[in-house]
Design a protein around this nucleic acid. Structure first.
Lengths: 218, 218
DNA sequence: CCGCGTACATACTGGTTGGTATGTTGTTGA
DNA sequence: TCAACAACATACCAACCAGTATGTACGCGG
């Protein structure tokens, strides 16, 4: 007899809860990947951060790669939506520049977040070149992000709050590049002050996109 | 007898050449780290890319970490100096904005480079949070980079080619953030077009720093 | 009440990895 | 001329790590 059958200590409430285990696994895996990177995040470390066993993990995900894909599609994509896309859609009628300034300022400046950087950039840097599957999934998020900003700017042009002499797509990617670039700088410095200075500069740049004669508020 | 003594095939020219082995080791290690990241770059893979053995590697470097430190200080720092600091110093009397535009445009847009991104950013993203020794060395490079740009801008303010209503340090870090940010975007897209669009936008921004009445050329 | 599928749990493995122990060879200073 | 040392080369190892083989517990349809 090779296996000593472990007495099953699942609480009765946990019976038939297929999504609970998967979800907590995903969350723990995200935290580990966010901190150490995908390749350095160990399966055993992820497991240790939960009360889930290896059998359960490989029941829900076919491989470490599949787990990584799920992290991108179910966690990182959601963060982007929560932070950028939904706020932009909800403030449809407002001046999009004010909305964008609000969003940028709302990005957490807590030391913990600044030090870890942006999950999207972290994974992009690590995996884009190495694994096409990862890259494609990450690119989808970038595209949606850029598209969301561009759409808001285009609407602003129609309602006259945004300058007409700019290409919405180009301005959107410029904004993303600035945000990501400052996050890299702040992560290296491990200092929230760098990030706060970045916010200030990004805000100034965003203000320069206002249509002439359009003050703050809209 | 455990070891079959290998017939020493060092060419007579290679006798007493302490720097040659070390240097080629460093170059190969840099290439591997650049491509796969520090943690994923295997010692054996580095060795396979050269005709150097493990004994030689551990003779010159105490550990993989020490090798990583040497890569930062001897290779990546040099790249930054070559690409940014020396060109800025050599064009002392010229308009610094023109010099900066020239530097940005000179950053290679070859697909190979775009796809691999910036070595400095790659290592920062991977290691800053995990290893303080790495972070400190990388931060030194960032600081020197920012300081070089800021100094050039300050001189431009004195000679009247750069607007006075900007903080040179702040503008320098803004420029760096833009460059790094676009490199992240281009790396994710794996497309040089993204990078070329970034150059265009950065150039426009740089031009906006000119003192009023100062045309191109200085 | 029974068989079958889902949802796990545990032990194990084969390959990889950074690092080391121990050897040899050529040079150089005394 | 010879001992000491730098500069390697080779074989080996212990730890780690993704993945698997094989088991059990539970619930549900029939």
């Amino acid at each position: 007899m090779l296996l000593t059958p472990k007495k099953p200590q699942r609480s009765t409430a946990k019976l038939r809860d297929p999504e609970g285990t998967r979800e907590s696994l995903l969350q723990a895996a995200f935290r580990e990947v966010y901190r150490y990177g995908f390749q350095s995040a160990g399966i055993d470390a992820i497991l240790a951060a939960t009360n889930v066993t290896k059998g359960a993990l490989y029941h829900h995900f076919g491989s470490k790669e599949a787990l990584g894909h799920a992290i991108i599609e179910e966690i990182i994509a959601e963060i982007t939506k929560d932070r950028w896309l939904r706020p932009l859609e909800q403030s449809k009628d407002k001046n999009p520049i004010d909305a964008l300034i609000g969003i940028v300022q709302a990005i957490p400046a807590r030391p913990r977040d600044v030090k870890r950087g942006c999950p999207l950039v972290n994974l992009t840097q690590e995996m884009s070149l190495l694994d096409e599957q990862f890259r494609k999934r990450l690119e989808r998020i970038f595209r949606a992000w850029q598209e969301g900003i561009a759409t808001a700017l285009r609407k602003g042009q129609q309602t006259g709050t945004v300058r007409h002499d700019l290409d919405p797509e180009e301005a959107a990617s410029f904004l993303i590049a600035m945000v990501e670039g400052y996050e890299v700088l702040a992560k290296n410095a491990q200092d929230a002050k760098v990030w706060n200075m970045g916010i200030k500069n990004i805000r100034n740049w965003l203000s320069s996109l206002r249509a002439p004669g359009t003050g703050k508020g809209g």
